[in-house]
Amino acid sequence: TEVDLHLGDITIKLKDVSEEIVKRAKELFKNGWSAEFVKKWIEEAVK
């Protein structure tokens, strides 16, 4: 499945990412993480 994760003005296309990771990524962004950091976190999380 593909998900578009909207973080501010940046959209990250996610492939084969669990709902849990998407939820967590949104929380991290809301908590002040930059979109770049969230993207890196996701990449690490799906390895």
Score class of each variant (00 low, 15 high):
residue 20 E to V: 09
residue 22 V to E: 03
residue 43 E to K: 05
residue 47 K to T: 12
residue 2 E to I: 14
residue 19 E to P: 14
residue 19 E to K: 07
residue 37 F to C: 13
residue 44 E to I: 11
residue 32 G to D: 02
residue 6 H to R: 11
residue 7 L to Q: 01
residue 33 W to M: 15
residue 47 K to W: 02
residue 7 L to D: 02
residue 5 L to V: 09
residue 44 E to C: 15
residue 35 A to C: 08
residue 47 K to R: 15
residue 3 V to N: 09
residue 7 L to H: 03
residue 46 V to P: 02
residue 29 F to N: 01
residue 16 D to P: 03
residue 39 K to V: 14
residue 21 I to E: 01
residue 39 K to S: 11
residue 27 E to F: 04
residue 40 K to D: 12
residue 6 H to T: 14
residue 39 K to N: 06
residue 21 I to A: 02
residue 44 E to R: 07
residue 40 K to V: 09
residue 23 K to T: 15
residue 18 S to Q: 08
residue 37 F to A: 15
residue 13 K to D: 07
residue 14 L to Q: 02
residue 31 N to H: 12
residue 39 K to T: 13
residue 45 A to H: 13
residue 34 S to L: 10
residue 17 V to Y: 06
residue 1 T to H: 15
residue 2 E to K: 08
residue 34 S to T: 14
residue 41 W to M: 05
residue 8 G to Y: 01
residue 32 G to F: 02
residue 36 E to I: 05
residue 46 V to H: 06
residue 36 E to Q: 07
residue 25 A to F: 02
residue 3 V to F: 14
residue 43 E to H: 04
residue 46 V to F: 08
residue 26 K to C: 11
residue 28 L to P: 00
residue 10 I to N: 04
residue 31 N to W: 07
residue 17 V to K: 01
residue 32 G to E: 02
residue 22 V to K: 04
residue 24 R to N: 06
residue 3 V to M: 14
residue 35 A to V: 14
residue 14 L to N: 02
residue 38 V to D: 00
residue 24 R to E: 11
residue 39 K to F: 13
residue 37 F to L: 15
residue 25 A to R: 00
residue 8 G to T: 03
residue 9 D to R: 09
residue 35 A to D: 05
residue 31 N to A: 12
residue 34 S to R: 04
residue 36 E to H: 04
residue 27 E to L: 07
residue 35 A to G: 07
residue 18 S to W: 10
residue 7 L to N: 02
residue 22 V to Y: 08
residue 4 D to Y: 07
residue 5 L to M: 07
residue 1 T to E: 13
residue 26 K to A: 11
residue 42 I to E: 00
residue 36 E to W: 02
residue 12 I to V: 10
residue 19 E to Q: 11
residue 3 V to K: 08
residue 45 A to C: 13
residue 39 K to A: 14
residue 19 E to W: 09
residue 27 E to A: 07
residue 30 K to R: 08
residue 28 L to H: 05
residue 34 S to E: 10
residue 39 K to Y: 10
residue 29 F to V: 06
residue 31 N to L: 12
residue 22 V to T: 05
residue 10 I to F: 10
residue 24 R to H: 14
residue 19 E to V: 11
residue 31 N to M: 12
residue 2 E to V: 13
residue 7 L to I: 09
residue 7 L to Y: 05
residue 1 T to W: 13
residue 29 F to K: 01
residue 36 E to Y: 03
residue 40 K to Q: 15
residue 27 E to N: 05
residue 4 D to M: 10
residue 40 K to M: 13
residue 46 V to C: 06
residue 4 D to I: 15
residue 45 A to D: 02
residue 32 G to K: 01
residue 33 W to G: 05
residue 41 W to N: 00
residue 10 I to W: 05
residue 1 T to M: 14
residue 23 K to Q: 14
residue 19 E to R: 08
residue 42 I to D: 00
residue 6 H to W: 07
residue 26 K to L: 15
residue 31 N to G: 10
residue 42 I to M: 05
residue 29 F to R: 02
residue 34 S to H: 06
residue 20 E to W: 10
residue 32 G to V: 01
residue 32 G to Q: 01
residue 33 W to T: 05
residue 19 E to I: 09
residue 15 K to V: 15
residue 25 A to T: 01
residue 20 E to K: 07
residue 14 L to T: 04
residue 17 V to M: 05
residue 29 F to L: 12
residue 13 K to Q: 12
residue 34 S to M: 07
residue 15 K to L: 10
residue 15 K to P: 05
residue 9 D to F: 05
residue 25 A to C: 03
residue 33 W to N: 11
residue 43 E to A: 06
residue 21 I to P: 00
residue 28 L to V: 01
residue 6 H to F: 07
residue 36 E to C: 09
residue 5 L to S: 02
residue 19 E to N: 10
residue 29 F to S: 03
residue 46 V to W: 06
residue 12 I to L: 10
residue 37 F to R: 13
residue 46 V to S: 10
residue 40 K to Y: 11
residue 8 G to Q: 04
residue 47 K to N: 12
residue 30 K to Y: 08
residue 16 D to M: 05
residue 21 I to T: 05
residue 20 E to M: 09
residue 4 D to W: 06
residue 3 V to I: 14
residue 16 D to Y: 07
residue 18 S to P: 14
residue 15 K to S: 11
residue 25 A to K: 00
residue 3 V to E: 11
residue 23 K to G: 08
residue 42 I to N: 00
residue 43 E to P: 01
residue 35 A to N: 04
residue 25 A to M: 02
residue 36 E to V: 04
residue 3 V to R: 08
residue 20 E to A: 13
residue 2 E to M: 13
residue 37 F to N: 14
residue 19 E to G: 09
residue 2 E to T: 15
residue 34 S to V: 05
residue 42 I to G: 00
residue 29 F to G: 01
residue 9 D to M: 11
residue 13 K to M: 11
residue 26 K to Y: 13
residue 20 E to R: 07
residue 10 I to M: 13
residue 16 D to F: 06
residue 10 I to C: 07
residue 34 S to C: 07
residue 31 N to P: 01
residue 34 S to K: 06
residue 16 D to T: 05
residue 6 H to K: 13
residue 39 K to E: 13
residue 37 F to E: 14
residue 35 A to L: 08
residue 24 R to G: 09
residue 6 H to S: 09
residue 22 V to C: 05
residue 24 R to M: 13
residue 22 V to M: 09
residue 21 I to W: 03
residue 30 K to T: 13
residue 23 K to M: 14
residue 21 I to H: 03
residue 10 I to K: 06
residue 38 V to K: 00
residue 32 G to N: 03
